[in-house]
């Protein structure tokens, strides 16, 4: 009996440690040599040319560029929606381009949130069901959902529209609903593709405040794809994309493109280890 008790105690303790560890696990994004082409042979169009980027967790990054510059493609590649022909995308310790499709989907459902220019809310469904979709894909048990959905809707000031159909909302409200859907799963990375492109300046302001507010509060990474320089300026870091290449990066003046894999690999690994070993310990105390 005693032995069993002791084991039980050990298991419980291990579980607790693991929980803290997994909570504290950071989602640093490391993009290496991403190349994406469309078409074949003579008609090849290269959308992304050997892109290398590192995005620290908790930062807000704007990917700025004109339409057709490849900024959306870059976002799709980072989120694993699109598969570039070459390169790797490490999020935390996972190369999401090498994961099995189901694992990528699962990862996206649990760790990422999305906001689009044209909202993509389901008009015929209620606000509640729209937000619920994100929790359903993430596999959150039914019991825990209601509370979280209501909280998310209240966070975007749509607490009184829970039962309303999405098609009855105004444009700004629809985008707020999309924000609620993006944050309800408490993602560590939030992607916003021209989030204010279809909105007037006042409602844009509201959406921007919501996005930055969420990321500040939860220390989540925010990646905004936009051609709006004013919006980009609110971010901590701006990456300029032109013709599928990083033209300028506000973080470093040195051209990121030439960074060698060996040079980025070794320092990254050490930092990674540090954060890994540090975080649980810090939290445990």
């Amino acid at each position: 009996m005693r032995v069993i008790r002791r084991y039980e105690y050990l298991v419980v303790k291990l579980l607790a440690v693991y929980k803290i560890y997994s909570k504290g696990k950071r989602c640093m994004i490391d993009i290496r040599h991403i190349t994406k082409t469309y078409g074949k042979k003579k008609n090849v169009f290269t959308a992304l040319k050997d892109i290398n980027l590192q995005i620290k967790e908790g930062t807000s990054v704007a990917i700025l560029g004109k339409s057709g510059s490849g900024k959306s493609t870059l976002m799709h590649a980072i989120s694993g929606l699109d598969k570039p022909q070459q390169g790797e995308v490490l999020v935390g310790d996972k190369d999401i381009l090498r994961l099995k499709p189901r694992a990528t989907d699962k990862f996206r459902a649990r760790e990422m949130g999305f906001i689009f220019q044209s909202f993509f809310v389901e008009g015929g469904e209620t606000c509640y069901d729209n937000v619920s979709l994100a929790l359903e894909t993430a596999g959150v048990p039914r019991a825990g959902r209601k509370q979280r959905i209501i909280e998310a809707l209240e966070a975007v000031d749509l607490g009184d529209k829970i039962k309303s159909r999405a098609k009855d909302l105004s444009g700004g409200q629809k985008q707020r609903l999309a924000v609620a859907r993006a944050i309800v799963g408490r993602p560590k990375i939030l992607f916003a593709d021209e989030p204010t492109g279809n909105l007037d300046s006042t409602t844009s302001q509201v959406i921007e405040d919501l996005l930055f507010g969420y990321c500040k509060e939860t220390e989540a990474t925010l990646i905004i794809v936009t051609h709006d320089e004013d919006l980009a300026k609110r971010c901590q870091r701006i990456i300029y994309i032109k013709d599928g290449e990083v033209e300028k990066d506000s973080m470093s003046s040195r051209p990121v493109k030439s960074a060698k894999p060996s040079a980025t690999k070794s320092p990254k690994k050490t930092t990674d280890k540090k954060t890994r070993s540090n975080t649980p310990a810090r939290r445990a105390k």
């Binding site: 989907d105 996206r108 459902a109 649990r110 993509f120 389901e122 979709l133 994100a134 894909t137 993430a138």
Partner: peptide, 16 residues
Amino acid sequence: TQQIGLMKALGASRRD
């Protein structure tokens, strides 16, 4: 198509 695309972006698998 749009709804399907959105669901996939939100992490719904092919199977789903």
